[in-house]
Design a protein around this nucleic acid. Structure first.
Lengths: 191, 191
DNA sequence: CGGTTTCGGAACGGTTGCGTCCCGCAAGTG
DNA sequence: CACTTGCGGGACGCAACCGTTCCGAAACCG
């Protein structure tokens, strides 16, 4: 997960690496990424924030690119759905979660990555895998349930519906405008 | 517009400034901004790309921030609406324009600015003024016409409707995913 | 014409991050 | 125990960019 690439040749000689430093370095990377974007993720800054010598960092990640990719791989989102919720209610919860994620770690990192999409597609790809795709899957499941229960149109394009639901909220989150009208958002679109 | 701030004390002595260099510098700034983001906009790079000495650049804009702000002020979008178009048709054209803007200069600059929203709100504010607000006004006009003609619901929240229309397209443009389903996008939402 | 400003080009010192290396100590192996 | 590797910390030379300054030539004024 958060571990740097390393040949696994069984037990090593000498003092073993301190695993907690891997975590500290990854966390420092994500924090800096959220605060100042990729430009703020300097090897010096990461090591300093993790309270670690530069050699310790370079021993694990010889280059910044890989460090950031590995750090992004530790991102994840989890949204709790209320137990007996019907489809509409569930969608409201999920959309609100997207809205609320604006200030979470992953949510703050996202806009920083958007600008790097062109130069560094690997980063945004990783983010998509870790955060966006799970979210989309979550929506799909609920939407499919809606179709099966007859609440939603049978010919509904699930991915398209996802875009319509999430797009407006995510877009406004990126712009950092005031929060959208609130959780009556999905209701209007599902029609 | 694209001119640097300068005390306008009437005619000056000596050799007058070459106005074409103002334009060249602003264009160089926007190009670099689109290509590599704010990080790529260095005073050296701007001067070099414009084919100009650094002194010439610094004489007009003593700091980078102001240069970028002034450069952004020259951005604009124009969308031609077909003459006899009805409301739905007009919306389709406008939404498609948003989609197509993905590869325009302004469209390529936008994702670069998104990541700077936190550190440098002035930039995104400027972009919003120059590009986003005019676009929104354009939509509002068409939507209002729709309400007046009875094609759209009378209690329609124009800004909200704008978000629902543009959000999904803009969001997917930012992600640089494949283009959305196409210009049947607005039809589904306007209902 | 002389005076003034702009022009391209180049140099300057200062700052920041890079990637590497070395130190002295800590923490494991046999 | 000797040996090996990890650790924090700091120093190194290198490169890029900053903002400033100087130059000689060019362009415009009265």
């Amino acid at each position: 997960m958060s571990l740097p690439a390393r040949a696994d040749d069984g037990p090593r000689l000498g003092r073993p690496r301190d695993p907690s430093l891997d975590v500290a370095l990854v966390e420092a990377t994500l924090d800096l990424l959220a605060e100042g974007g990729l430009a703020a993720v300097t090897m010096e800054a990461v090591a300093a924030r993790a309270g670690v010598g530069k050699a310790t960092l370079y021993r694990r990640w010889p280059a910044k690119e890989q460090l950031v990719v590995d750090a992004l791989a530790t991102l994840s989102e989890t949204v709790e759905l209320p137990d007996g919720a019907d489809v509409r209610e569930s969608l409201v919860v999920l959309v609100s979660a997207v809205q609320r994620r604006r200030d979470s770690l992953a949510g703050r990192i996202f806009p920083r990555l958007v600008g790097q999409a062109e130069d560094n597609p690997e980063l945004i790809r990783r983010y998509r895998e870790q955060v966006l795709e799970p979210r989309r899957a979550r929506f799909r499941a609920v939407l499919r349930r809606g179709v099966e229960e007859g609440v939603l149109r049978a010919d509904l394009d699930l991915d398209h519906a996802y875009d319509l639901l999430v797009g407006p909220v995510a877009y406004r989150s990126l712009l950092r405008t005031d929060p959208p009208v609130g959780p009556d958002f999905p209701a209007r679109v599902v029609d």
